[in-house]
Design a protein around this nucleic acid. Structure first.
Lengths: 253, 253
DNA sequence: ACCAGCGTTGCAAAATACGCAACGCAAGCA
DNA sequence: TGCTTGCGTTGCGTATTTTGCAACGCTGGT
């Protein structure tokens, strides 16, 4: 829609991967140098990018400014933070907080595992809708019609042995998740990691976010993982209550 | 230079202050609604902004993604270098930068003393965990359980009069370090040298490195060494901020 | 002295982004 | 019920803005 803007954002994404020179950027974006330069110029002026010692462009401090402000704005995150920190401290495992953002499920907070074997992930990444436990939790709360529409539109890339590969399988799973009140990712996304996730509800009872524990299989077998469930659901219940949810009005659909 | 881009960035800055509606944005930017809408659309597509429940636009998760990637890619050494160089220039003493590398604390940068009496060390050497000030700083940030595990596994070679020789002594010291925000090595490793060290934190608040001043006792007594503390902590604070740390969010996880 | 790599400038063409005006839709109010 | 206000959306013609090109200047390496 806005070509220049789109290109500019793409440039930023490119720079996020690694600092680059003008030509490198022009090449990888298939846009003329001059054009790239103009975009970089205006971004430089606004401190979105910086040039270091006259050779490379990198992301600028404006970005940090914006992102830290953006993080502050998300109140779910703020409310959830202390609870998730405690869960993380108690279990020692990687804890994620995720929510829908447009049509993507995005990790909006993360607490690092204390164990040497860790899972790689990052705040801001999107979760795959057909495998991540947090995605299942978030999808499970949607009306059936919307689930079907989304399920039909997914690209079921089979990343591990256990990945669900059809809309039917996913929809069936979502039904289970909705009923039991939690979801697991049984090494469906990464072969060596499994997760459990539970929903976080706001005052209206709607699921607004999901929290999960991710743990390497070598650290904890499936049974062990399930052992984390009570602590996880206690945590999500506490967060939900902080958000104004009352335990009685269970599910809202 | 690039009008649309500039406007888009201004919109982001506006949104950083607080979430706003289309008209609000159009008004404060003195641009037609339609135009603002188009920019927001493309930014929404790229997850730079999000609309919450159909009324307000807020900053999006792409921003987190970009900034966290940018932080990750920043070499701590590179960021720290100018600050440490200045500290070294001002004090004239040996300055070290150290970080965990696997289970060892390694000196990853060094600025040589300007004085004739120098301390021997080299980039790449490992620091002993039970005596080096930088090691104490790095250990002090870890969860207690891990500290205990590490402390139990150490070989407490007594190299000087003051060397700590038991896990208990070390753990007690770490507690002190954690609370006061800096560590010293009171001639615990080399009889004629003492050091002070302070932590360097990244955006998440985690301690990712430590900087230290090492000075021969004959040059500066203990009180003199403590006199360096303000300059040292100023330096580490500056480095931490360059890494995205914000002074307020002291503790994390 | 030459070449390769990087950023810069001026210019002309047109694609792109712009503002307008009108519409749809929901919520608030009488 | 029907009016108004505030929000986002659409289609369209204009011209502003953006684009790509080609050539230039600079620096560092060989």
């Amino acid at each position: 829609m806005s070509q220049s803007l789109m290109r500019a954002i793409d440039l930023l994404s490119e720079l996020a991967a690694k600092p680059a020179t003008l030509d490198e950027l022009a090449r990888s974006a298939s846009v003329h140098k001059t054009t790239v330069m103009r975009l970089l110029h205006t971004m430089e002026e606004k401190r979105m990018v910086v040039r270091d010692d006259e050779q490379r462009f990198r992301l600028g401090s404006k970005l940090f400014e914006l992102s830290s402000l953006a993080l502050e704005q998300r109140d779910i995150r703020e409310v959830a933070r202390p609870h998730l920190a405690e869960l993380n401290a108690r279990t020692g495992h990687t804890v994620h907080l995720a929510a829908f953002e447009g049509k993507d499920v995005v990790y909006i907070d993360k607490f690092e595992s204390h164990h040497p074997v860790r899972m790689y992930s990052r705040i801001g990444l999107t979760a795959s809708l057909h495998s991540a436990a947090v995605a299942k939790v978030l999808l499970a709360d949607m009306p059936r019609a919307r689930q079907e529409k989304i399920a039909a539109g997914l690209d079921y890339v089979k990343v591990t042995e256990n990945t669900l590969t059809s809309p039917e399988a996913l929809l069936a799973e979502l039904e289970v998740v909705r009923k039991q009140g939690w979801a697991h990712d049984n090494a469906e996304h990464e072969a060596f990691v499994h997760c459990i996730a539970a929903p976080i509800r706001d005052a209206s009872g709607a699921v607004v976010a999901a929290a999960s524990c991710s743990v390497p299989i070598v650290m904890l077998d499936y049974e062990g993982l399930m052992g984390l469930l009570p602590e996880l659901t206690e945590t999500t219940a506490a967060i939900s209550q902080d958000l104004g949810w009352t335990p009685t009005e269970r599910n809202a659909v």
